[in-house]
């Protein structure tokens, strides 16, 4: 395929950054207004005292809300809607939660190790009732490490698109087409990193993050199946249908 021109890369960066901001769920200005308010001790305890299944359901609802914004982001990526339906579904099933984890660094307060959740900023202890402390710790560590890269919105947008358009997902029917899209997106990501004068180590660090995202998502699936083994009815009747469709 012909080499991609600078103009085309600029255009791609523009489109993907615009889509990212249109579908990012929380604008930076909104977050500033929230003045990074943390939960008070009694609020933390009310989450910790929730029944395990109630906390799981609340988190499933929040994750599903975030995923719906990621689906809208994907639909706006040049070329995504030209893929066959099967591949659009495969990429979203495998990648939407990964992009939610990437986006988490936008609503993460590294100083206090807290993430925006259910109206305020929550530390790992808020999620204790889930019974997944090890996974929660890893998710917070991931958010903190991604925050330390201080990615701009357009870098975050391109990295999110790069993660979503992973050509190595199983069950892809037109793998070559996805590969071409992912390569163009990677070039656009490199382009924006150079334009922003980021040292070239950042791209390699981002590539390493991809492996961590995979492990976080497979651990989420393991935790879900362990939870569902104990509370099958709760998942069937009280979890968001989209969550079940993606992770069922």
């Amino acid at each position: 395929s012909p080499p991609v021109s600078m103009a085309e890369l600029d255009h791609l960066v523009q489109i993907i950054s615009k889509s990212h901001l249109e579908t990012c769920q929380y604008l930076r200005e909104e977050l500033q207004q929230m003045s990074w308010q943390s939960f008070l001790q009694d609020e933390v305890e009310s989450y910790q005292n929730k029944p395990r299944e109630a906390m799981w359901q609340l988190c499933a609802v929040k994750i599903t809300e975030a995923i719906q914004y990621v689906v809208e982001f994907a639909k706006r990526i040049d070329g995504f809607m030209d893929l066959c339906q099967n591949d659009q579904i495969v990429l979203l099933k495998a990648g939407s939660l990964e992009v939610v984890f990437v986006r988490m660094c936008r609503v993460f307060d590294s100083q206090n190790n807290a993430v925006y959740f259910d109206g305020k900023f929550a530390g790992p202890d808020v999620f204790r009732a889930l019974g997944c402390d090890d996974l929660i710790t890893s998710v917070f560590d991931f958010a903190k490490s991604l925050c330390s890269l201080h990615l701009t919105e357009d870098e975050l947008a391109l990295f999110s698109a790069f993660v979503l358009l992973s050509a190595d997902r199983s069950w892809l029917q037109e793998k070559l087409q996805v590969e071409k899209l992912q390569q163009k997106t990677q070039l656009a990501l490199q382009h924006v990193l150079q334009k922003n004068h980021r040292e070239d180590g950042v791209l390699n660090k981002l590539r390493c993050k991809v492996a961590v995202l995979r492990s976080l998502c497979s651990r989420h699936t393991e935790k879900l199946s362990a939870f569902r083994a104990v509370y099958p009815d709760i998942v069937r009747t009280h979890f968001p249908p989209l969550y079940k469709e993606l992770f069922g």
Partner: peptide
């Protein structure tokens, strides 16, 4: 199968 994802993908990106 995946009827919700199909539905979301069909909805126009208004």
């Amino acid at each position: 199968k995946h009827k919700i994802l199909h539905q979301l993908l069909q909805n126009s990106t208004s």
